[in-house]
């Protein structure tokens, strides 16, 4: 039982990091139909930014995190306006290809500045053990779940209730009609990239706290694919629940069946789910009036 609880907490904390990265995917896909292959590298970039602010410049971690978020948003907006904006109106596939290029460039930049060696991250999230009934779990895991959930809730509220959030969903629905409302497509795309980068940075910071910073953490971007496909590419709740499901599946298979298999099972489940629900669990249904 205690093992089950431990695996659950581990799975959920990983899952929530997945969800944050997946959220970035979903936001960009929803507003512009682009699948951003550089999402994992945004996470890497965010983790290293935090590393620079906190470990290298010696700032207090609260300030470091705030600066990281600001820098991530700025980076996202810059990437959108330099790399993607010239491609608006071109086929979506060229925009997707350019994100693959972007992924390599981001990784190279990180490599050039911080070097390829893994470094330890100044963990500012407490790591002592916490006893929940019979189970022992790391406090950092629990806090990671809390932080990620808080951000996910904040993003969800943003989409539901703010002017820009509604504008973003309007663009996802009907770009030309949104334009006729006076909604600026460029501004919203830039905002989408800013938010995606920020969400990835939060995920990166949490992850770096747990495993340290190294180039390997961008691999997480790939592991997030089954999450977004499972949840539905255009659904925010889907990203959250998909993240939880994949995180838990990985933890349970790794814990009960064996390491290695945990990398495969999520994809197996993904295939099974897609056979039943091709739009993903929460994907946008096509509204047909009869």
């Amino acid at each position: 039982m205690d093992r089950f609880l431990q695996l659950t907490i581990t799975g959920l904390s990983n899952g929530m990091i997945y969800a944050l990265v997946a959220l970035g995917f979903v936001i960009i896909y929803k507003s512009s139909d682009v699948i951003n292959f550089a999402q994992g590298d945004l996470l890497l970039f965010g983790a290293y930014l935090a590393f620079a602010f906190v470990a290298q410049f010696g700032l207090h971690w609260t300030l470091g995190v705030v600066l990281t978020l600001v820098a991530a948003v700025v980076a996202g907006v810059i990437i959108e306006s330099i790399v993607l904006r010239p491609l608006i109106g071109e086929p979506v596939i060229s925009m997707i290809m350019v994100t693959i290029g972007l992924s390599s460039v981001l990784r190279a930049i990180v490599n050039a500045i911080w070097g390829p060696r893994p470094q330890s991250f100044p963990a500012f999230i407490p790591t002592q053990d916490v006893y929940i009934g019979p189970a022992v779990v790391g406090a950092d895991r629990l806090i990671a779940i809390g932080i990620a959930l808080a951000f996910l809730v904040a993003f969800t509220l943003f989409f539901r209730f703010t002017r820009e959030g509604i504008a973003m969903r309007a663009i996802a629905d009907d770009q030309q009609a949104a334009l006729s409302m006076g909604i600026s497509i460029k501004r919203i795309f830039a905002l989408a990239w800013g938010i995606a980068a920020a969400a990835a940075a939060v995920g990166g910071i949490i992850l770096a706290n747990i495993v340290g910073v190294s180039g390997d953490i961008s691999v997480l971007g790939l592991r997030v694919f089954p999450v977004v496909i499972l949840g539905g590419l255009d659904s925010i709740p889907g990203a959250i629940i998909g993240g939880a499901i994949i995180g838990l599946l990985e933890a349970y298979t790794g814990g009960y069946i064996g390491q290695g298999l945990n990398l495969i099972v999520p994809f197996v489940v993904l295939v099974l789910v897609l056979m039943v629900r091709p739009y993903g669990l929460f994907g946008k249904e096509i509204i047909e009036r009869v």
Binding site: I166, R169, A170, A172, D173, D174, Q176, A177, A178, S180, K284, I287
Partner: peptide
């Protein structure tokens, strides 16, 4: 107001 109504269906 564009032809064909063009409401945001999922909103």
């Amino acid at each position: 107001v564009m032809e064909g109504r063009r409401v945001f269906e999922h909103l």
